[in-house]
Structure formats: structure tokens, C-alpha cells
Simulated assay, not measured.
Amino acid sequence: MGGGWVLPASDIEAYVNLGIAFALLVVKIFALVSALLYSAESYDAADKLNKVTWCALLGIGVLLQVLPIPIGIVNLVLTVAAFVYLVDVRPALAGLRRRR
């Protein structure tokens, strides 16, 4: 037969899952660090949830992404929260900084 190097399907699936988990961890860490950099007053001025709430949501999201606890739906909700922060809240906060 062949002399090629082929991974079994289960190994490929494991590597894809690992890659996705790592990418989501990077997104969540980036969102958390970004949230920490803005002042609490910026969140109020942008008419968004307060800084403590966003940092708590994003911090718990990072924690659940790192821990091997199978809490799928909660992790999914916190992943969506990270994307909402990056797509909606972060641009609003950055817009306030540019206007000054």
C-alpha cells in the first residue's frame, strides 16, 4: 500500500478541536485584556454594561476555557459574550477615546 503519513480520523478531529479551543482561548483573553484597559467611566459614557460586569463575564469565560470542566452551554454563552464585547462594546469604547 502507501508510504504516506496519514492520521486516523479521530486524531484529526482531536487536533481540530484543540485548535478551535486554543483560538477561542486567545479571543477570550484578548477581550478580557481589552476590557481591563478601559476606565469604568468609559463604559458608562458608552451606555454599556459596567466594567465590573464585562470583566467578570470575560474572566469567567477564560477560566472555563482553561479548566477541563464540561460545561458546554455556559462556555458557549461566555464565548458569545466575548464576541459581543469585541464587536459592539470595544468599538464603542474606542470611539470615545478618539473623540477626546
Rank of each mutant, 00 (worst) to 15 (best):
A45I: 05
R97T: 13
C55R: 12
P8Q: 06
R90L: 15
A23W: 02
A14P: 04
L32T: 06
I71R: 01
P8W: 03
P91F: 06
D88A: 11
K51G: 12
V33Q: 10
W54S: 10
I29Q: 05
M1I: 06
A56R: 10
Y15M: 13
A81R: 07
G3F: 12
W54I: 07
P91D: 09
L25C: 03
A40L: 05
R98W: 07
D88Y: 15
V74G: 01
K28I: 00
L64F: 02
G3T: 08
P68N: 12
A46W: 14
D88E: 15
G72P: 00
I69D: 02
N17A: 02
L25W: 00
V77M: 09
V33A: 11
K48E: 14
E41N: 12
L63R: 00
L86A: 10
F83Y: 07
L58M: 03
G61H: 03
D44R: 09
A9T: 10
P8F: 04
Y85G: 09
A14M: 14
L96C: 14
T53S: 09
P8K: 11
T53I: 13
L67K: 00
V33F: 09
S39C: 12
I29E: 09
I60P: 04
V80T: 09
L96E: 08
L78Q: 00
G59L: 06
I29P: 10
T79S: 04
R97G: 07
G59T: 05
P91A: 15
G3I: 05
A92K: 08
N75F: 02
L57Y: 14
A56C: 06
E13K: 02
F30M: 11
Y85L: 11
P70R: 03
L76P: 07
I60F: 03
L96N: 14
I71K: 03
V6F: 14
L24Q: 04
V77F: 08
A45P: 06
L25F: 02
F30G: 11
V6A: 15
Y85I: 09
V52W: 10
A45N: 13
Y15T: 10
M1K: 06
D44G: 07
V6I: 15
A94C: 01
L96A: 12
G4S: 11
S39Q: 15
I60A: 04
I71M: 04
G61C: 03
R98A: 08
L63Y: 03
C55A: 15
V77P: 08
D11A: 14
W54H: 11
R97P: 13
K48F: 13
V6H: 09
V66N: 02
A82M: 08
D88C: 09
F83N: 06
P91G: 12
Q65S: 03
K28S: 02
D11T: 12
L24D: 01
L93M: 04
L78R: 00
L49M: 12
L58G: 00
T53W: 05
P68D: 08
L64E: 01
L76G: 10
L76T: 13
V80Y: 09
A35L: 00
I69K: 01
D47E: 14
L57V: 09
